[in-house]
Computed example of a mutant assay.
Amino acid sequence: MTAPTERTLLVLRHSKSDWTGGQADIDRTLNPRGQGQAQDVGSWLAEQFPVIDMTVVSPATRTRATWALVSAELANSPEARVDERAYAASVTDLLEIVKELPGDLRTVLLVAHNPGVEDLVYLLSGESIGMSTSTLAVLTLPGTWADAGPATATLQAAGRPPLLA
């Protein structure tokens, strides 16, 4: 069996976090608006991507909470891997995570933070998009994950579900 020749990378910035509690940055959770945003992302993904092979999540509370709400909307929730490198990650760190993904995975969701996610989308696609909270970018990459690099992907869609263009 040969590996698929095209991969889909779904890049999601965490949902709106709560700044009222005075917690450390890594410990901030979602505010009510962010909770609703995450559910919207999950509903959109359930319709558009019924099979997601894996999710890579930053260890921050707000990214893990975003993923929990997104995954609750999916019929088949994929394995989630918390990757310490995804918190406060540079574009280089995020690209390394993508390049190390197992070759048999076809569709992967990355839940992380700005400016890293915005920089990753720009690096891979050459297109600059704003990644406000709960913004999702859908990228297709030919070849293997290890081939990911500057201008190797095509930006298929970007926005905040359910209004994704």
Results as ranks from 00 to 15, higher is better:
8 T>Y: 00
10 L>R: 02
10 L>Q: 05
11 V>L: 09
15 S>Q: 07
15 S>V: 08
15 S>I: 05
15 S>L: 05
16 K>R: 09
17 S>A: 14
18 D>R: 11
21 G>Y: 07
22 G>I: 12
22 G>L: 08
22 G>P: 12
23 Q>M: 12
24 A>H: 13
25 D>R: 11
26 I>S: 15
26 I>Q: 13
27 D>Q: 14
28 R>I: 13
28 R>S: 14
28 R>H: 12
28 R>Q: 14
28 R>D: 15
29 T>H: 07
30 L>F: 10
30 L>C: 11
32 P>A: 15
34 G>E: 07
34 G>W: 01
34 G>A: 06
37 Q>H: 10
37 Q>T: 13
37 Q>G: 15
37 Q>E: 15
38 A>V: 06
38 A>W: 01
39 Q>K: 13
40 D>Y: 06
41 V>A: 08
41 V>D: 05
42 G>V: 04
42 G>I: 02
43 S>L: 07
44 W>P: 02
44 W>I: 05
46 A>I: 02
47 E>A: 11
48 Q>T: 10
48 Q>K: 06
52 I>V: 06
52 I>K: 00
53 D>T: 00
53 D>P: 04
54 M>L: 03
55 T>L: 00
57 V>A: 14
59 P>W: 01
59 P>H: 02
59 P>E: 01
61 T>S: 04
61 T>F: 01
64 R>Q: 12
64 R>G: 04
65 A>E: 08
66 T>N: 02
66 T>R: 01
67 W>N: 06
67 W>T: 10
68 A>G: 14
68 A>V: 06
68 A>N: 11
70 V>C: 06
71 S>D: 11
71 S>I: 04
72 A>T: 10
74 L>P: 08
75 A>C: 06
77 S>K: 03
77 S>W: 02
78 P>G: 09
78 P>E: 12
80 A>H: 09
81 R>Q: 14
82 V>P: 09
82 V>M: 12
82 V>Y: 10
